[in-house]
Amino acid sequence: MFDGISTQLLFGQVLIGLINGSFYAMLSLGLAIIFGLMSVVNFAHGAQYMLGAFIAWGLLNYLGVPYWGALFIAPVVVGAFGLVMERLILRPIQNLDHLYSLLATFAAVLIIEGLVRQEFGSTGLPYNSPLPGGVNLGFMFMPWYRLWVVVFSIVVCFGTYILIEHTKLGAYLRAANERPEIVESFGINVPRMISLTYAFGVGLAGLGGVLAAPIYQVSPSMGSNLMIVIFAVVVIGGMGSILGAILTGYLIGIVEGLTKVFYPEAANLVIFVIMIFALILRPNGLFSGKEGYK
């Protein structure tokens, strides 16, 4: 098919790209939801993802709670943590320039990562796959767990998209995104809605962390490196665009995987190169036609 490149390698890397893309999509989705409503760029998103993974690890190793339990518990715990963060550090500065909320959530990253590293060290901790084995598709071997991650993340991403675009709850969110004070003048507790939305976005990051635990090593720095990539994804997809975040996430993951096949040296760089071109060619992001959720 391609000269000198086995289909095994090609599909293998596309799968890895799709896996990475699942995390890009889930994280940039949460980031976009939070940004849409609060105009906060949640720098702590990567750290919250890392917390999700650590909570899953802790649940298993200290309390014996298996993966499937952690899949529900960890996002809730991380979401609750988000509630506290919103109240303590975001609400006091909500009327200031949005650069401050970016910096405040960034400060939170230093603290969270520092504390976790102090407690668990810098090296990664192993987390065994809850779905060992896989299936031979003929052209490649597909591990069950990776298949699960891809399918589950697609369900979560598009479920969230439908929730926002096609439900009453989503209508509140879209309306508050446009004119929060008018929604509040209808008698809706918008401050609480903001807190819960932040918690939901953060919970998504925590869920991503649980999904990631069996694939990547559970380590304190797993979030911060990913975070910078997510920023690039969000810039490419258009800030605050829900669908843009999801599609760009998967797309970038696959492009990255393909780059590994054809030009491995550039695999780390390709996302940023795409971002730079996107900035030059599509100054408003690939998917953004107007302000607000789409």
Binding site: K168, A171, Y172, R174, A175, N177, E178, R179, I182, V183, F186, G187, I188, K290, G292, Y293, K294
Partner: peptide, 17 residues
Amino acid sequence: RAIFASLSVAENMTLPP
């Protein structure tokens, strides 16, 4: 008037609780 552009007419109408 603050009609929400990202909401349909029906959604706008039924938004207030």
